[in-house]
Structure formats: C-alpha cells, structure tokens
Simulated scan of single mutants.
Amino acid sequence: MEVLIIEANADVAFFDRSFIILFIYTGASPVNEIQIKISLVASLYSEFPHAVLAAEVPFSYGTRRADIVMLSGNEATGFEIKSEGDKVSRLDYQLESYKDFFDFCYVVCVAKNISSVRKTVPSSFGIVMVQNGEVSFVRRSKHYKRLNKEALASVLSSDTLRKLTGRSDLRSKHELCKQASEVCTLRNLYEHSRTQLFERYAPSMELLKGDVNSVFSPDDIQTITRSAPTELVLRS
C-alpha cells in the first residue's frame, strides 16, 4: 500500500483502499488526544477493515472508559491514549482494569513520552507510538485469557443478567453481576459480553463506513464515541 505524507496542521487523516494520506502535524502545539485518535482509527480501519471500532467505551460498571476499542471476531482490544500533556505516574493503576476485561491491551503514546511509558507499563501490555501521523506497534500485547467474570458481566444489560442468573428478584446491577460471576462460566460471560459490545457499536461503525470517504476527522471519532440509536441516518 502506498503512503503519501503531506505537511499540514489539521486534525484529519486521509484513507483510501489503494493508499493512505497522513498529515504531519507541523503546528507548535503538542499532539493532542483527538489527533492521536484520528491517526489510530485511520490505521486500524486500514489494517482491519472488517473490525468494529468504538471510542470512549465504558466498562467495569462504567467507572472506566477505554479511549479506543477494536472488536474483531470475539476478541476485544483496548487502547489507552497518553498524549504529551498526560501524566503517566498512575498509568499502572489505570491499566489494571484493562487486563480484567480486554483480550489485548495497548498504551498509545507519542515520541516525547514513550520513554516514561516504557518504564511504567507492564511488559505484558503492548505499546503503540503515533509520530507525525504515522502509527507503529512498538510492542505487541500479550493475549489475556484469565479475564475477570464480574468485569465481563458489568457491561451486560440487567435483563441479560437476570436471564443468565435466573434471579428476576434482584434489582441491583452490582448484585446481578456478583451473582452472574458465581453461577456462570467464564466462557459464557465472555461470549455474552463480546456479543453485546458488538451489537452496541456495530451500527455506528456501519454509519462511519458509509460516511467516511478518504478523510478521517473529529466528527468521525464522534460517530463511534457512543452506542448508536435504533435508526441511523448518514450525515449529508
């Protein structure tokens, strides 16, 4: 695939089936989170055209949000972004919840903070670097298989949890998840969690595919940021 680099100071990244046009951010301001998201999503969209991509995905009872998530088959990959201005001192704590829920876990950083990220991130986590609009996988993530059953259950709807547990008397989401983690197998909760994530975000991904032509913009990131309504309409 041919790559064409163009200097610019804009939050966009071009994509085409035969080539990618990546903008180099030449402005004096540091590369921010939205620029990193655009570059990452454009790269993943090119490399994994059949995957579902989502942004700001809540998990662990909604107390944590993954900056970017890629759903491919039954596997979910979580990406935590650390831009130039972000502190990495609490990164190890933030990542604990990732390995309880995702099959693969990555920290996405820039050249200026990759050294501190390397020192902080566990060796089992992958590292992705975005530099001048280009995305490179510095280190591949371990495949996490011993996931946390309660964490998987926490993204399921209450109706699904009641069906899985047979406890229609329980009203608290926390109680339902606790019960599900006790009576359901890891495989069962894993498959249900991945299925519901796919159903929640696949419509938004289809909207993105129909809307994006050759350029990714902040609007496209917004498209995949929230789970879609029942009916979707393409932007004119």
Rank of each mutant, 00 (worst) to 15 (best):
M1D: 10
I5E: 12
I5D: 08
E7S: 14
S18M: 02
I20L: 11
I21P: 02
F23I: 04
G27T: 06
A28H: 04
V31A: 03
V31F: 00
I34H: 09
I36T: 07
S39N: 10
L40C: 09
V41F: 09
S43M: 06
Y45C: 00
S46T: 07
F48G: 02
P49I: 03
H50K: 14
H50G: 09
A51V: 07
L53D: 07
A54V: 04
A54I: 04
A55L: 01
E56W: 08
S60C: 11
S60W: 12
S60H: 14
S60P: 00
R65Q: 14
A66S: 15
D67E: 12
V69P: 01
V69K: 01
L71Y: 01
G73Q: 04
G73I: 02
A76C: 03
T77H: 05
I81H: 05
E84F: 07
D86F: 04
D86K: 05
D86Y: 10
V88I: 15
Y93F: 07
E96A: 03
S97I: 01
S97C: 00
F101A: 05
F104Q: 05
V107Q: 12
C109T: 15
C109W: 07
V110D: 01
N113A: 06
N113D: 08
S116M: 07
K119Y: 08
V121S: 07
S124L: 10
Q131N: 12
G133R: 09
E134A: 08
V135T: 09
V135H: 10
S136P: 01
F137R: 15
R140D: 15
Y144M: 11
Y144T: 11
K145R: 15
K145W: 14
L156D: 02
L156S: 04
S158E: 12
D159I: 12
L161W: 02
R162C: 05
K163E: 15
R167E: 02
R167L: 00
D169R: 01
A180H: 03
S181L: 04
E182C: 05
V183I: 12
V183E: 02
V183K: 05
E191M: 13
S193E: 12
R194I: 12
Q196C: 06
F198V: 01
F198R: 11
E199S: 03
E206A: 02
G210V: 01
N213M: 14
D219F: 11
I221Y: 04
Q222A: 11
R226C: 03
S227T: 09
P229R: 07
E231N: 02
L232T: 10
R235M: 04
